[in-house]
Each structure stands twice: as C-alpha cells, then as structure tokens.
C-alpha cells in the first residue's frame, strides 16, 4: 500500500504544474483513473455479493486518494488511504463476515416502483448537478501559496486556529461514537450460561444429531470444504458442508451424486433453533 501510495504521489507531483492550468500528467492520471472509479462504483452497485461491493468500493477510494494527491492535498490522500481504505473498509469486511450472508443480498426488487423511481431520481439528480456545474465560472487559483510551508503545516495552521472549536467538538464526537458502539454492540446475558452437562443433555434431547456433524467429502480430485461427503447410499450429505458456502452457492457437486443441493434453508441442521 505504501509503495503504491508513494508512486502515486510521484506521479501526481510530476503532473502538477505550478500555476492555474492543469498539466498533462494530471490529465492522463484523471482520464486513466476516473473511468476505473466510475466502473468500480457501478460494480459496487450491481454486484450480488457484499464482499465484492466492499472491495470495489475500496478500489474507488484508492482512485480518489490518487486524485487528492494530484490536487495538492497529500495529507488527505494519505488519510484517505490509511483511514478509509485501510480502517473503515476493513471494519466493513469484519461486519460482513460477522453478519454472514442472507436473502438481503438478492438483487430482486421487492418495493413496487422503487427501482424505476430510484433510477429516474438518481439520473435526474445527476443531470441537474452536471447541468448546474456547467454553469459555474471556474477559476483555478492553485494551492502553491497556500501550500508554501507544506500541505500538512497549512492544514494544521487552519485546524488549530480557525477550526479549533470544530476540532475539539470532533474529539467529543469520536469518544461518543466509541462509547455508543460499545453500548450498541454489547449484549447483556440475561440467563446463566449452560454448563457442559446441560449442553450435552440439550444436544441429546434434540435427537437430530447427537454426534458431531459429518465432515465434508474427501475425494481423489477434491479434498475441500466445499464438497459434500457421500452417505453410504450414495446420497450427498448436505450437512457436511458449511452453510455459509451453501448460502453463497459455492458448494461443488459431489462426484457421482445425482442429487443437487436444493437450498440452504431447506437443510435441517441442529442448533438452528437456538
């Protein structure tokens, strides 16, 4: 990450003219990365799997970081990479893993008229924005004077003078957010935890699978978690693969099995009712 960051900085520095016009290097950078950013964000919008969306968003953010660097904002560019792409997106991925996958990933629209209205609204809004931007009288002052002492120093001078109050409030906001996250994510245990004996009794009382679930299949070609084991009668044992894989549709067909796993929700598993 740091390597790519530094190259981008170099690239951007090379393309940045000192004056009002943008240089050729920056134009090349823009026309190279802008389509990537747009495509990545569109991909995020249309990809079926949330993980893909997250990764595509990270890509978009990286492109934006490059643009920041190209526009004499090295500090923001670095922060974008470190905080956004590094921390925030990782947080997203963690939660994705925690929450798992479910029917909400489906792209089938359930609210009547929502899709058309949303697309029309987004297109119309975008058109309005573009139309209005086209009307703006552009000046290009450049940041040469503002960044004379260095971008970080310039920002620091502003943050700790004119914006110091907002900055302090931000610190309070961050503390509050941290506390809030703890309170929200915390779950109070309202009953005593089951001990081993009770867990065991519960397991046998359920009567479905007292023993451990069967492991996935081990085959000549596949020795993997994504292939169900075969039962003695030649049927694939659906419970032998992880349900996350089933939900994602990443389960391979067991060799020789003519029965395809139907749907994750139809497989009865012990412990689902907990």
């Amino acid at each position: 990450m740091t390597i790519s960051g530094s190259t981008l900085v170099a690239l951007a520095a090379a393309g940045t003219p000192t004056g009002t016009a943008t240089g050729t290097g920056e134009a090349v950078l823009f026309w190279l990365l802008a389509p990537i950013a747009v495509l990545a964000s569109l991909g995020m919008l249309f990809s079926k799997k949330a993980v893909h969306s997250a990764l595509l968003l990270a890509l978009t953010m990286l492109c934006l970081a490059a643009f920041y660097l190209a526009q004499d904002a090295p500090f923001l560019g670095v922060v974008q990479v470190v905080v956004y792409t590094g921390a925030v997106m990782m947080l997203f991925l963690f939660v994705l893993m925690l929450v798992g996958v479910d029917s909400s990933d489906s792209l089938v629209e359930t609210l009547r008229g929502q899709r058309i209205a949303a697309i029309v609204a987004a297109l119309g809004f975008g058109a309005l924005l573009v139309f209005s931007i086209g009307d703006v009288v552009v000046s290009n002052a450049g940041l040469a004077t503002a960044n004379a002492d260095g971008n970080v120093q310039g920002l620091a001078a502003l943050i700790f003078s004119r914006y110091v109050f907002a900055f302090e409030v931000t610190s309070a906001l961050l503390i509050t957010a941290a506390l809030g996250a703890m309170v929200l994510a915390h779950r109070e245990r309202i009953e005593r935890p089951l001990n081993q004996r009770q867990l065991s009794e519960q397991r046998f009382r359920g009567g479905v699978h007292p023993a451990p679930l069967p492991g996935p299949g081990v085959y000549a070609r596949h020795n993997a978690v994504d292939t169900p084991a075969l039962l003695p009668d030649g049927q694939p044992a659906d419970v032998s693969v992880s349900r996350v894989l089933l939900a994602r549709g990443d389960v391979r067909k067991a060799p020789g099995a003519d029965v395809v796993v139907r749907d994750a929700s139809e497989i009865e598993r012990p412990g689902d009712d907990q």
Partner: peptide, 22 residues
C-alpha cells in the same frame, strides 16, 4: 415503514430543491 421509500422521497425533495434553485 420502508426506509428506502423515505430515502427516495428525501432524495426527490433534494432534487426538487436543486432544480428550483437552478
């Protein structure tokens, strides 16, 4: 009760506002 419906109306409102200003 659908958040997305509310978001849509908010968004349409914002669009209307921008359009009016324009």
């Amino acid at each position: 009760g659908f958040v997305r419906s509310y978001a849509l109306s908010m968004f349409l409102g914002a669009a209307l506002l921008v359009g009016a200003m324009l």
